[in-house]
Design a protein around this nucleic acid. Structure first.
Lengths: 348, 348
DNA sequence: TTATTGTATTTAAACGTTTAACCAATTATA
DNA sequence: TATAATTGGTTAAACGTTTAAATACAATAA
């Protein structure tokens, strides 16, 4: 019985055809695998005969050769892969950043593997382990609360990583973020300049430094006039409603609200809608982060716009530098801008 | 001069510490690497002495051993990785799907590597090549226009893949999508039942079958009463405005508009806003796909809701089945539902 | 005694690359 | 003519796993 390749193929578990390797090219051309590798990688230029090179290149095309990146990674001890951990890839802030990082990484020949932490320390740790096992060359991470241990671990094992958006002031490490304090100040100053006196701040009940900087930036300007509503991350709708209710029940009710994240802003606007509170007439609103939703609100929402492209591309740049020189220590702080729309200005 | 490990470490290009391998465990315990592998993978149970097993497990913990998934992949010819190609990960539809796929894949021990095609055939092809080189075990792809060639190529090389959302009727292959025809019919019937007579359809000028099914589902119900505005994908704002202008300039202007995607809906609402057209009084609106923006519109938008979780998890399930049995041929069609809100109903 | 069976472990090859080191043949140099 | 240099290529090891097959030893059976 004759057993050609196609009958052997019959016995494969799946219908998947075997891919051609450097070995196949070598045996077809009648040279060593080393030579094939040299030719295909343009190494040892000039030290290889034109004919051999031509034959090899042709065979590579004929056989539709595609290098096996896994084998390459194993040998090079480098996977050309970046692990990205965001809070939730379904959140527009995360997905926009992810997109920018994807593009920037791709330009440098890197792929990105993404995971969502859901703001949970355990999930973060799991993802880090998982990505480490997959031998990523470095991480870009938006660390959730209480993950100092994980950040320290990464430092300890010496793998390159950059914190994005979030950071721990007590851990010196590479970081790309905006100046949250002044971003919040921007928002509050704008409200004050537009005649608002009592400004409510809605933020998360959290130890996350970047959010607390936003709160601090706002409160430092408001002094005794500031009122804060704190929202539990797993009770957003409920606690936002409660915060707003609290603001309105004050002897001197608020005439403006500053929300410190996009999700809080959206929840807040929904609540204000259902309370039939007119924006900006009764209450002025300033949000954080860009989303389509803000533009569709009857009074398009004024918001603090983070430089997403800057954040993403700087994070990738920094990581690549870091991969090159593990001892580098560098942080990038960008500035946010205020996009003024109708939700905060009576005259508009 | 003494050269201990820490001084050797000094010469590494980066600050990265070497990870411990199965070989390190083997030499520390004084056994072969094979035995270590057997123990750590719980193979050959009962055929290994308790003491050896215990010593190995302890050493693995002491040395903080983490298996190298790359080496494993090379040997197993399986990377436990899924390649996901979406139109644009920054689009909420894509990122929601991505999130669900990420979770479902993770449960099965798979990681996901994502790429955005930007609706371009060339980018799709690039990503496919890239992911193939990275030896993904299978693909989940939302194919853009004119990528039949790429789909055929995947079939030809025999790698498992499932089309999600988009599909080519002429290519028999595994697919997970909604019934777009009846989804559109759902929207139109609702408008008709609410007394709308002249209904404009805003859709992309495209050969994408799923979108044309939406158009067909709508037009079949409307017959001669239907008017269609077609939007070029790279001129969304401009062409949506033109479409709406066209609808209004008709001898018998439209009293309702059905948008076939989320981006079109958002662009349309912005335009209606700036034209100060009252929704639903002057024009009723039905959109497609869920987004926060719809709820923040002054008349929360009625929309066709795709079962995102269903789509994502079915896609993963199907792909896993396919990886198991490459000859399987199966498609999953889910139904969409209509979320009725104020944008389409006067009485609400 | 020799074979047989079991148990515990090792050997060695394989996965697909890359690359330092080596080798053979030809040409140039002393 | 011997030797060095150049040209064009090969060998073999390595990356970190897995795993079929071999082996070594002890206990049991014939």
């Amino acid at each position: 019985m004759q057993r050609n390749t196609s009958s052997a193929f019959f016995f494969l578990p799946s219908a998947m055809k075997k891919r051609t390797s450097i070995k196949d090219i070598a045996s077809q051309v009648g040279v060593s695998t080393a030579l094939v590798s040299y030719v295909l990688n343009n190494k040892k230029e000039g030290r290889i005969s034109k004919e051999a090179a031509a034959k090899i290149k042709q065979a590579a095309i004929d056989l539709n050769y595609q290098p096996n990146q896994i084998a390459r990674s194993l040998q090079a001890q480098k996977t050309m892969t970046i692990g990205l951990i965001v809070a939730d890839i379904a959140n527009p802030f995360s997905s926009q950043i992810a997109r920018i990082i994807e593009d920037a990484a791709q330009k440098a020949g890197y792929s990105v593997i993404v995971g969502s932490s859901d703001e949970k320390a355990v999930k973060t740790e799991k993802l880090i382990k998982l990505f480490l096992n997959r031998q990523v060359d470095g991480f870009i991470i938006a660390f959730p609360e209480n993950t100092q241990t994980q950040a320290q671990y990464l430092k300890q094992i010496g793998i390159p990583f950059v914190m994005i958006d979030r950071y721990f002031p007590e851990i010196i490490s590479n970081c790309v973020s905006i100046n949250n304090y002044s971003a919040a100040a921007l928002a509050i100053n704008h409200l004050l300049q537009n005649g608002r006196q009592r400004i409510g701040i809605v933020t998360y009940a959290t130890t996350l430094h970047h959010l607390n900087e936003r709160k601090r930036g706002a409160m430092d300007l408001l002094g005794d006039n500031s009122v804060v509503g704190e929202v539990r991350i797993d009770h957003v709708a409920e606690d936002v409603s409660a915060s707003i209710a609290g603001f309105l029940a004050l002897p001197e009710p608020v005439d403006a609200i500053f929300f410190t994240t996009n999700l809080l802003t959206i929840a807040g606007l929904k609540r204000l809608n259902s309370l039939k509170i007119k924006v900006p007439n009764q209450i002025a609103v300033v949000g954080f982060d860009e989303t389509d939703a803000f533009d569709l609100f009857y009074a398009p929402v004024t918001y603090v716009r983070q430089p997403m492209t800057g954040l993403g591309s700087e994070a990738v740049n920094l990581l690549l530098e870091l991969i090159d020189d593990g001892n580098l220590l560098k942080s990038v702080t960008l500035n946010a801008e205020l996009i003024v729309q109708q939700s905060s200005v009576l005259s508009l």
